[in-house]
Amino acid sequence: MWEYTDKVMEHFWNPRNVGEVENPDGLGEVGSIACGDALRLTFKVDENKRITEAKFKSFGCASAIAAASALTEMLKGLTVEDAEKITNQDIAASLGGLPKQKMHCSVLGEQVLEKAIAYYRGNPADNKEEMICECFGVTELEIQKALKENN
C-alpha cells in the first residue's frame, strides 16, 4: 500500500542511535493520539554548543522509525542553532521522500526536536511526562500544513 523508498526501509531495518543519552542536555517527547505514535529524543551538547550524541525511541510505523533514525544522524555535529533549522521536509528529503499520508511521521521528528531544544534552553515545562494520556502531539492543522508545504 505504501511506497517506501529504499532509504526509508534501510533506516527501518537498521535504525541508528536507538536508545537514550545519559544525562541528556536536550530531551523531548511527542505523541500523537490520532495515530498512536510516540517519539522520545535525547541529545548531548559539547562546550561549543555542538550536538555530540542524539538518540531516539519510537513507538510508530516504519516512517516514524526511519524519520527518527535519520534525524539523529542529521543532528550529530550540528550546533543547536543549526539543528533548530531542520524541518520535517528536510527529514523526509533525507529519506528520499515519504508517502503523502505518512508525512506527519516526519512532522513528529520536527516537533520532538523543537521540544528537546526548548528543554535544552531551560523550558522543560514544554515537556509533560504523561504523554499518550495527554494529547499534546501533532495537531490536525500541523499535519495539513505539512501536507500543503510538501505538495
Partner: peptide, 8 residues
C-alpha cells in the same frame, strides 16, 4: 519493545 518509549 526495546526501542519503544512506552515500554521503558
Amino acid at each position: 519493545r526495546a526501542m519503544s518509549p512506552l515500554y521503558r
